[in-house]
């Protein structure tokens, strides 16, 4: 489940204040204004990483290994999206993602870049188009080292180490996922 930025409202307010403080001089000098569009924690890849933590298995001794500890992050990927208006009808969308790190996975920091343009078709309607691209932010699952006693020590997919798949084959199932790299929005607004 995506962790929206609700409970950390205080931090959100602080970020907005920080933005207002930092953006004000720029707006004065270049007549550009920068607005905070969104701030949230979590992403589809964060959710996916969290999902990998479901389940577990017994070792040969019978002791239980839970996946949760491998796929838990103390800091969930935070995204800040901003819009810098450069003309009355166009703006640059940009933002940052902090990434997150668990013992057996990582989500890399990300950078969002894009633009927004709008056209007023008549006094009551407008058409806007925005395109944004995300650079980085990939989810990478890390392997474990499994000791099978006399049968050897292998680099394995942590989640599949106790299954029937050959240890070396389990590495094929390590998760390597990229975020959605391109977003395209087309909006038509009619006021009546």
């Amino acid at each position: 489940m995506r962790e929206r930025f609700k409970v950390r409202g205080g931090l959100c307010v602080a970020a907005l204040q920080l933005c207002a403080f930092l953006c004000a001089p720029a707006a004065t000098a270049q007549e550009w204004t920068t607005s905070l569009v969104d701030i949230h924690q979590g992403s589809p890849l964060s959710d996916r990483a969290r999902g990998l933590g479901n389940g577990g298995y017994e070792l040969q001794s019978g002791s239980w290994v839970s996946f949760n500890r491998w796929y838990h992050a103390s800091w969930v990927d935070m995204h800040v999206d901003l819009l810098t208006q450069i003309t009355p009808e166009t703006g640059i969308l940009w933002g940052l993602g902090t990434g997150e790190q668990g013992e057996k996975y990582s989500i890399a920091p990300s950078l969002k870049l894009g633009f927004l343009t709008q056209a007023h078709l008549n006094p009551n309607s407008s058409l806007s188009l925005s395109v944004a691209s995300i650079i980085g932010g990939s989810l990478t699952e890390k392997p474990c080292v499994a000791d099978y006693g006399d049968l050897g020590t292998y680099s394995v997919n942590c989640r599949l180490a106790a299954g029937e798949t050959a240890p070396e084959e389990t590495l094929k199932y390590l998760v390597n996922a990229r975020p959605e790299t391109m977003h395209l929005w087309l909006n038509y607004r009619l006021t009546f």
């Binding site: 298995y57 070792l59 001794s61 106790a162 299954g163």
Partner: peptide
């Protein structure tokens, strides 16, 4: 069977 397939230890 499940224990025979499981690791002794994993990290």
């Amino acid at each position: 069977l499940s224990r025979a397939l499981a690791p002794v230890a994993i990290k």
